[in-house]
Design a protein around this nucleic acid. Structure first.
Lengths: 120, 120
DNA sequence: TTAATGGTTGAATAGTTGCTCAAATGATGA
DNA sequence: TCATCATTTGAGCAACTATTCAACCATTAA
């Protein structure tokens, strides 16, 4: 691994510059975890459903058409990644998006997808 | 699966409203694929390295400290998801980020991570 | 206390992913 | 043509993930 293109000083310069643009390992893993959490249809369903209202686990299960257990597992991932937060009310647990960043990101993503194919 | 919280009309209303906020299946899968592509440390390294300059496969392998083959596999995923594009020059293939959206997204993500821990 | 309901958790498992290795492709130049 | 370099590709495999199922926990109400 990590074989370098033979000779050519320009490669070395580009590589050094490129390396400088890459965040440190910890930050990189954090960003990866964040995007990874968004990169799953079930979790995206949950998040889009939560743009605009808080919902309980069983509401989300119904919306995603999956078992309460399956949703609960996914909710834990989203909680751990600090993408959603929750409040308990009697027997119910209500989830909501943690901050406006997430709402923005989700709508920007949709727009990006819609215009994407146009300049293929 | 999809058991509904017994009775309570309010649940039905919330569920119906939530469902309306979820994009259709095709769009959802597209968005998930997009975020999924960003949700991996190796691919993020590639993308951050490409913010600011185009780089060839072997430069990227050197930066990511992985085999050229491993990087090529990841580059294909990023190409397929329309996140990067490329140009061939002699024996080399130079990759670049496909549009400014991606650059913006990567820097916004870094900022979000940096401020995230502050408000718990 | 018991029963019922909403939710979480852990084990099991089928499916997916990321890497390595070896082989193939494509471009360049002798 | 042949050799070499940069890259791509496919198979194989270990590690990871999303779901299901069964068991458990927590709150409410009798």
């Amino acid at each position: 691994m990590t074989e370098i293109c033979r000779g050519h000083e320009e490669h070395r310069d580009r590589i050094a510059a490129g390396r400088r643009r890459v965040p440190d390992r910890e930050a990189l893993l954090e960003v990866a975890d964040f995007f990874d959490a968004l990169g799953n249809p079930t979790r995206l369903k949950i998040l889009y459903a939560l743009t605009g209202a808080e919902l309980c686990t069983c509401d989300l299960a119904s919306i995603a058409e999956l078992s309460v257990s399956a949703i609960s597992h996914q909710l834990r991932i989203l909680r751990d990644r600090k993408i959603i937060s929750f409040r308990k009310e009697g027997k119910n647990v209500f989830y909501r998006l943690r901050d406006q960043h997430i709402v923005d990101l989700l709508s920007v993503a949709m727009e990006h997808m819609e215009e994407g194919p146009a300049h293929g």
